[in-house]
Amino acid sequence: MATALTDNPTANDAANDAANDAANGADAGTPAVRLSHVSKSFGRPGHGQTVLDDISLDVAPGEFVCLLGASGCGKSTLLNLVAGLDAPSSGEIRVAGDRRPALMFQEHALFPWLTAGKNVELALRLRGVPRGERREEAERLLELVRLRGAYGKRVHELSGGMRQRVAMARALAQKSSVLLMDEPFAALDAITRDVLHEELTRIWQATGDVSVLFVTHNVREAVRLAQRVVLLSSRPGRIARQWQVGIPQPRRIEDAAVADLSVEITEQLRGEIRRHGQH
């Protein structure tokens, strides 16, 4: 099949450590995101709940990685750590480049007091783009998500799918080399989601070297989008297994190859979940 297995997270660790030893330059080998032995607990140290346990993960520049796991396994927690919204209890997170990663949420999180265009412009402004260039750049970004006409529209005047596309344009406006997405399409209907999968793939390919770390609990979505699927176990969240997805893009969610790999991953995911019912 078109899939290769990287069964063993420890093998990954060895690779990480080797790369850590390498000089800290901007050579092609530097990962866009590197998590080294990251753990996160909430509550009092020692007594609290360990949500993430010893996660080590590299995302290469330009790579599209899907983080897959059952609800409550710590996916959002992990993304928040990478986004810098929260600090790990132990371990280290490094993000290449000096820009903070862009983050997209399940809810669009656009500011309702601004128009779609001004939402994008605010991101540009906070990035330091001079006033005179913002309008044109915002229009270019909206054009990229095919919403050229939405510049002056208020958020509530847009449909759910359009809002997520504006949110995507706003995230791209940050011009970060890392795009974090936390179940951004989970609240959309299946038809719209399907279209946005295609759109996201197209935009990711067009931008070239943007790394995407995409969180989902939807196996098919993960296989539809990712170059690599990382399965998280629950309580505590650990990397259970990883799959390289060799199916060439453009894929469709109905493709037989996507379905086959989804079945395999779903089996593994169910196994992880079953373990929790046994005691």
Binding site: A83, G84, L85, R100, P101, A102, L103, F105, A109, L110, F111, L122, A123, L126, R127, R170, Q174
Partner: peptide, 9 residues
């Protein structure tokens, strides 16, 4: 909104 704002800088 606050989290979105923070990630935007």
């Amino acid at each position: 909104y606050l989290r979105a704002g923070r990630t935007l800088g």
